[in-house]
Nucleic acid binder design. Structure first.
Lengths: 239, 239
DNA sequence: CAGTTCATATAGCAACGCTATAGGTGATAG
DNA sequence: CTATCACCTATAGCGTTGCTATATGAACTG
């Protein structure tokens, strides 16, 4: 251990905190661990950061710099809504790559006091949505859209973090993402008539059979009916 | 102070914890506060609940009972998607009415270990979505839809709780809610926009069938044909 | 050189979650 | 009625937490 390079103690504290935060599998990180790893005693921490939370805020700010930098790099694709998608995915990836850091940033919720970082993230997304709005691709006010999308983004990321890593299904993210983006985008209302050309007759049959399945007691279903049903559905699927 | 009625200490602990949790404006609640208010000493707490977290879990379980009861009361409106909307709103209201309790339930995220309550809430919503699926109103698998909606629901509620009460804008909730419900509902698409913005009604029918078949119990499920059938449906509906 | 300021260390406080141990209470068995 | 035993609660205290009052060293400034 010991980050005893010749760096100033302030830096060593930052790095120690970041490292411990990144590797502490869920367990809380104590100031004593941090100061020990930094090769420094307690008052130094409080001299520079005032607070344990102040130190964490500083770590978070540094992490957020990277996060934002990563965003801006590949941001201007010309299609704002595509950029929003990337932004969402980047957000989720950031959360999954550094869950502890992410939890300090977005998971430390307390009533009536929200972390400053949330406002920053909101502003970042609003800025991007503004471009979409100017391109006439937005259905609602950029600010409201940003808040809404970010809320869903955070919710999804938190839920993914809480899951065992083996079970994590990113489809939860993509599905929610597309739902939110679609909801705020202007393209949606395009051509969807209330009553379209009518569903194909095969599908109508499928729905009818569905109703029959629900209504009938299970005994009445012969295997031949099921076979027929299978055949029909098979034919549908190949169109 | 003192909840020294003649209730058993276990109850007094539960009530003391609930009360302190409800009124502790964001500040953490200590076991000493709880035991003092309950007129009891520390070991009693640990005898009955094993843990501070165990006690909180018990409080949460009680709160969740109320929450679920409130859901089921006005649930069966005949229109599952309407019920989902109510469920969402009820969730948000529950969070805003008892923010501390809510934060213990849904805000206490740790990597790789999610609170049991989340699974319960997910199951509750999936159950409701199953009805929608059987009515052919669903676009995706009920489970995925439930996870997605709940994630957004939690995200929105957390964000609202974190905001100063005076600034809370419930439109954030309604907007996100409608976006999510619309996204999973089958009514949206028909022939909208660029290609795959909506799934074909074939998939909708398949999902409905899948839900219906799984709901009808047992006898048929043992048939190998049915297994094949279900498997095949599953393959269609998860595209 | 004296004075001031900044940065770090010594030592320790109050509060935390939790527990080893023991005492008290009620029901059941002899 | 006594003995036993399981259950419940209290006394006292351990180890750790975030944090600080105070003191010491170093490094500029006059």
């Amino acid at each position: 251990m010991s980050l005893d390079g010749q760096l100033p103690p302030k830096m060593r504290l930052l790095r120690a905190a970041a490292e411990l935060l990144a590797n502490s599998a869920g367990a809380p990180v104590s100031t004593r661990q941090i100061t020990q790893l930094a090769g420094v005693t307690a008052p130094t921490l409080y001299h520079h950061f005032g607070d344990k939370e102040g130190l964490f805020d500083a770590v978070v700010a540094a992490g957020f710099e990277d996060y934002v930098a990563g965003e801006r790099d590949f941001a201007p694709s010309g299609h704002p809504l595509v950029d929003i998608r990337r932004m969402w995915d980047n957000h989720v990836q950031f959360g999954l790559n550094q869950p502890e850091l992410y939890l300090v940033m977005f998971g430390n919720i307390r009533p009536e006091s929200r972390p400053a970082i949330v406002a920053d993230a909101e502003a970042l997304m609003e800025e991007m949505l503004n471009k979409a709005a100017m391109a006439g691709q937005l259905n609602v006010q950029p600010r409201e859209a940003a808040r809404s999308i970010l809320a869903a983004n955070v919710g999804v990321t938190l839920m993914l973090i809480a899951e065992p890593a083996t079970e994590r299904n990113l489809e939860l993210s993509t599905m929610t993402r597309d739902a939110m983006i679609f909801a705020v985008s202007a393209e949606q209302a395009a051509g969807a008539g209330p009553d379209d050309s009518g569903k194909s007759s095969v599908v109508v049959a499928a729905i009818a059979l569905n109703a029959a399945l629900q209504a009938s007691h299970s005994d009445q279903l012969s295997s031949s009916e099921l076979k027929l049903f299978l055949e029909w559905l098979h034919r549908i699927s190949s169109t």
